[in-house]
């Protein structure tokens, strides 16, 4: 994708991380709009509310694995129930501090996950991501 991404969504329970990632995306100009959700649940709700309004749905969802209640895995499980059009539009990228191989293998096997990035989010990672979008 050559143009900037219109919407990205950050899903992380850690506000510091959300701040850092938001800043990095802003600074690199990776996306025009950034939606920040501090829990998996609120992220799912957002998607559910706007599932018919594709224009404001995020192109990329940066998803943390380790979150209370609705963690990355639960999120992905719920995500499968969304309509096809939504799933086509929103690509999921895992952004986690875990480098546990088991976690990575488990989550990368999911068909909606297009990449796995270890925290912290860096410019290089974003550039690489841009290439595969």
């Amino acid at each position: 994708m050559k143009d900037n991404v219109n919407y990205v969504m950050l899903v992380d329970d850690n506000d510091t991380d959300n701040f850092i990632h938001k800043r990095v995306i802003e600074l690199t100009g990776f996306a025009n709009n950034i939606i920040v959700k501090s829990s998996g649940k609120s992220a799912l709700e957002y998607l559910d509310t706007n599932k018919n309004n594709l224009s404001i749905l995020p192109d990329v969802i940066f998803l943390d694995i380790n979150m209370p209640i609705v963690d990355g895995f639960v999120f992905l499980y719920e995500y499968e129930n969304f309509p096809e059009s939504l799933r086509q539009k929103c690509k999921v990228v895992i952004l986690s501090s875990s480098d546990n191989k088991k976690d990575i293998d488990r989550i990368v096997d999911n068909e909606y996950v297009i990449n796995f990035i270890t925290k912290p989010l860096s410019e290089e990672a974003l550039e690489d991501l841009k290439k595969i979008l």
Partner: peptide, 15 residues
Amino acid sequence: APLRSVMGLIKLAKL
């Protein structure tokens, strides 16, 4: 997790 946050912050600070 906090270490990664610190790393992100350092990166951000540098930027």
